[in-house]
């Protein structure tokens, strides 16, 4: 187990390095630079001074080496668009916000989705199944910004129950989480439904029935446990997405999250932030994948014991 984890961590670092390198060169290939993005009318001299201060006048290769060296020292750079703010601080301040919304919506969406999926599968082709599948399709196809805009108008203007925008209190969390968990509910409901339908047709369910096991126990111990395994893979990649947040939700509800920050940084050509956040997100993603592998190994005995016979 330990060797397995260590090997995976090793691969992780290699992948991280490659991703960071590619991003570096990609970001610098976009026309425009941070100062022009912000201040239209800049005298050439100031521009030169500005670029020199941040080292952008150096050839790309030199910049790259300096960047890698800085990363290894843990210095992910400083924002260009917001002088004085370090990327690490930006992550520390904004990530929890995205984390709360992303985490909550994932948790709620996942739970409701899984339950709906089981319900749908066990009542196949009857009205609960049909209703849940319609909701799931709507959830997957209706774009987030439509749901968010509609809900925002309905629940803050037509019936002013919630605040339109803002952050800081519990009431600010409700609408964003509501909008964001539509996707996971739909996805996990469909996924779980097909997984359960698969499982239900397995022979070992018949064996369990032949043993006289109660329907309840068949659902909980045999069907649920075995259908749930494939969903673990999915939730791990969703976990990776929690912190990158949803740009759309954060923009519409004016939430100071990392997703919005990342996209704005790209528009502003804020190289350091883009690169720094990219490293963080890639790292989180890879960690989530590793977590997933470990979880799968722990929960599915076929994987865990495949090496010893």
């Amino acid at each position: 187990m330990l060797k397995f984890t260590l090997k995976r961590l090793g691969y992780m670092l290699v992948v991280l390095f490659i991703v960071v390198t590619i991003t570096f060169f990609l970001v610098h290939s976009i026309p425009g630079d941070p100062i022009t993005a912000m201040v239209q009318d800049l005298p050439e001299e100031t521009r030169t001074v500005y670029l020199a201060r941040y080292g952008f006048d150096q050839p790309l290769g030199v910049q790259y080496v300096r960047f890698i060296k800085a990363c290894l020292c843990g210095n992910l750079g400083e924002s260009l668009r917001y002088p004085g703010r370090k990327v690490i601080d930006i992550v520390r301040n904004y990530a929890p916000v995205s984390g709360v919304i992303g985490g909550l919506s994932l948790a709620i969406g996942f739970t409701i989705g899984i339950l709906c999926g089981i319900l749908a599968a066990l009542n196949r082709n009857k009205w609960p199944d049909k209703l849940i599948m319609v909701i799931a399709i709507l959830g997957t196809t209706i774009p987030t910004f439509v749901t968010a805009a509609v809900l925002q108008y309905l629940l803050t203007v037509t019936w002013p129950i919630f605040p339109t925008t803002g952050w800081g209190q519990a009431k600010h969390i409700v609408l964003p989480v509501l909008c964001m968990c539509v996707g996971p509910v739909a996805t996990y409901a469909r996924y779980m439904r097909s997984s359960v339908l698969d499982t239900v047709n397995q022979d070992y369910i018949l064996t369990a029935e032949a043993k006289g096991v109660s329907q309840f126990r068949i659902v909980t111990r045999h069907i649920f446990r075995n259908s749930f395994l494939p969903c673990i893979t999915m939730i791990c990649s969703s976990i990776a997405g929690i912190f990158s947040g949803s740009f759309i939700i954060e923009s519409i509800f004016a939430i100071p999250g990392l997703g919005k920050y990342f996209i704005s940084a790209i528009n502003d050509r804020d190289y350091s932030v883009v690169l720094g956040l990219n490293i963080i997100f890639t790292g989180i993603y890879i960690l989530a994948m590793l977590l997933c592998d470990i979880l799968m190994a722990l929960t599915d005995p076929r994987i865990r014991y495949s090496n010893d016979r």
Binding site: Q202, D203, Y204, L206, T207, A208, E209, A210, K211, G212, V213, S214, R221, H222, R225, N226, L229, T299, D300, P301, R302
Partner: peptide, 25 residues
């Protein structure tokens, strides 16, 4: 019926690999 199944009448099946729950010992 549940009482009878497994205790008075039992059944074994053809494919033992698929007839046993892979996640239970």
């Amino acid at each position: 019926l549940s009482q009878i199944r497994g205790s008075e009448i039992s059944m074994i099946f053809q494919d033992s690999m698929t007839s046993l729950n892979p996640t239970m010992t």
